[in-house]
């Protein structure tokens, strides 16, 4: 039998947490072991599963992207869920490093599939996630190539990767590569600071002095 996937959930909706908990308990491969109504509460808990389902709007005046960033910073894999698809926050949480986005209108089976994929180290893209990233009109959005946009819009309208590939004349595997690359572009746009830290780390490893600035 495959290893049990342990997850946590952060949502201010108590009824949803309980419902999800009850539904998950019937699954043979996923177990929900930590429930919290805020990121603070979750981070203060002693048992913190790596994979966390996070509600986009916790209704406690916290910033959704900050919530994702705080969890990702301490090593969590975050799956964002929401009732209302807010395009600005979906884009911002993707940049903050969320691994997937699932609309709550989907049934829990969709969520379970996404959890299995992220547990396997994959980077699933739901139809809704693609649709809203395709509508990202923020001035600071990452630059996508014309082909990347076509893939995003076509996949976001509900087409399978096979259908997208056929319409655009590319292989289904290439469609997946494009989707991965788009998500990677978002994640990269969201971590300029991490880049600098990595650069300094590398500079240090390479034997540069601690105070030395990286060469221009």
């Amino acid at each position: 039998m495959a290893a049990m996937i342990e997850i946590g959930a952060i949502d201010n909706d108590q009824m949803l947490l309980e419902g999800m908990s009850a539904w998950m308990s019937r699954l043979p491969d996923i177990t929900l072991t930590a429930l919290a109504v805020s990121v603070d509460e979750f981070l203060a808990a002693t048992r913190r599963p790596r994979i966390v389902i996070l509600d986009l709007n916790l209704e406690n005046f916290t910033d959704p992207a900050d919530n994702v960033r705080r969890l990702v910073a301490v090593g969590h894999t975050v799956v964002v869920v929401s009732v209302i698809p807010d395009p600005v926050y979906i884009a911002a949480t993707t940049e903050a490093g969320a691994s997937a986005y699932v609309l709550k209108a989907n049934n829990l089976g969709v969520l379970a599939d996404v959890i299995r994929q992220v547990a396997a180290g994959e980077t699933p893209m739901t139809t809704e996630h693609a649709f809203w990233l395709g509508r990202d009109a923020r001035p600071e959005r990452p630059h996508l190539s014309a082909r990347e946009r076509e893939v995003l819009v076509s996949y976001g309208s509900g087409c399978t990767v096979e259908a997208v590939g056929r319409v655009l004349g590319i292989a289904p595997g290439t469609v997946r590569t494009y989707l991965d690359r788009i998500k990677e572009k978002y994640a990269r746009a969201g971590r300029p600071i991490e880049h600098r830290v990595q650069f300094l780390d590398r500079a240090r490893e390479d034997g540069f002095g601690r105070g030395r600035l990286p060469p221009k």
Binding site: F131, G156, S157, G158, C159, T160, A163
Partner: peptide, 16 residues
């Protein structure tokens, strides 16, 4: 899906 803007609209019905 239904997307507006630019004084128009695009509607898509997709099945698998």
């Amino acid at each position: 899906t239904a997307v507006g803007g630019d004084g128009g609209v695009t509607l898509k019905v997709v099945d698998r």
